[in-house]
Design a protein around this nucleic acid. Structure first.
Lengths: 103, 103
DNA sequence: AAAATATATACCAGATTTGACATAATATCA
DNA sequence: TGATATTATGTCAAATCTGGTATATATTTT
């Protein structure tokens, strides 16, 4: 479908969704969930490799233990951005991040 | 500073910040800003390579032109997650994303 | 230069995310 | 086992983000 047609349809009030959706999750949303799950695993591994508890890790990352725990679980109330910030806060490098995301 | 000391200080109400801060931006925050800027560039390039305008790109990405414009500028009101979603919405692959982030 | 396109900015209400507290559940150890 | 340490879950106010409208500014076309 060309863009002019899309704009015309949109003007008429139609929802012009892409067809590549599955169970309500778009390609983009699925890719993001994948990355979040990979990051969660990496966070636990990183923290343990440093010998830290969730309490001490939370202090290092300047947040609460409860939120930190949610981050490690890729809880739905946690953004990708927060997960990445915490990963960096634990000392992870950009290289480690990219390796994790590529999983 | 060991973690036990950190926990003790925190209990006493002190703010125990890391020293590696510059102009208020932590290492993590700077890394994220870097990634956002790289993504913004990639988004513009991607959109243009598809021959789309901000209006048509916004429709494809299911948002408004105004928000889409902010995304392309890595505006402070835009999250990393939204930028990634839009990049994917324009058809970018995980590989392209990683390449962009590694810049 | 005027009209038409395209992009940028201001603003705001509603939605989402965050940090924090309280407390529960689980694991570890004396 | 009981005490202690660690991790998980529920809740919520405040902060941040999002989509959308309106409008301004800039660019391109005729």
């Amino acid at each position: 479908m060309d863009k002019l047609k899309k704009e015309r349809l949109q003007k008429m009030g139609w929802k012009v969704g892409d067809v590549d959706e599955f169970l309500g999750l778009s390609h983009a949303e699925m890719a993001i969930v994948e990355m979040k799950v990979a990051l969660a695993k990496a966070l636990v591994a990183k923290r343990k490799s440093l010998g830290e508890t969730q309490v001490s890790a939370a202090i290092i990352a300047k947040t609460s233990q409860s939120r930190y725990a949610k981050v490690e679980h890729a809880d739905s109330s946690v953004s990708l951005e927060l997960m990445i910030k915490m990963f960096f806060a634990l000392g992870a490098t950009k290289k480690e991040l990219l390796k994790t995301l590529s999983a």
